[in-house]
């Protein structure tokens, strides 16, 4: 209900909503592709031995 009230007071323009949905679709796909399923192993591999 709160969400509906917020949306009523701050209506999202259709093109903004569409752009937002497009971003989320692309983000979901990118996240799915990026995650290895073994984050700890990946992070152990991705070490900076002497950064600046």
């Amino acid at each position: 209900m709160v969400t509906n009230q917020v949306e009523a007071e701050n209506p999202v323009e259709p093109d903004q909503r569409e752009a937002g949905d497009a971003f989320l679709r692309a983000a979901d796909a990118a996240i799915e592709r990026a995650l290895s399923g073994t984050a700890e192993a990946f992070l152990a591999q991705n070490r900076q031995l002497g950064g600046q």
């Binding site: 752009a19 497009a22 971003f23 679709r25 692309a26 983000a27 796909a29 990118a30 996240i31 592709r33 990026a34 995650l35 290895s36 984050a39 990946f42 992070l43 991705n46």
Partner: peptide, 23 residues
Amino acid sequence: ELDAKFGALGENGIFNALDRAGA
């Protein structure tokens, strides 16, 4: 892991994938 892969080079980089998708 997502943060590290955000700026990854090539098509698998998250930023690059979002850009390519027109997002």
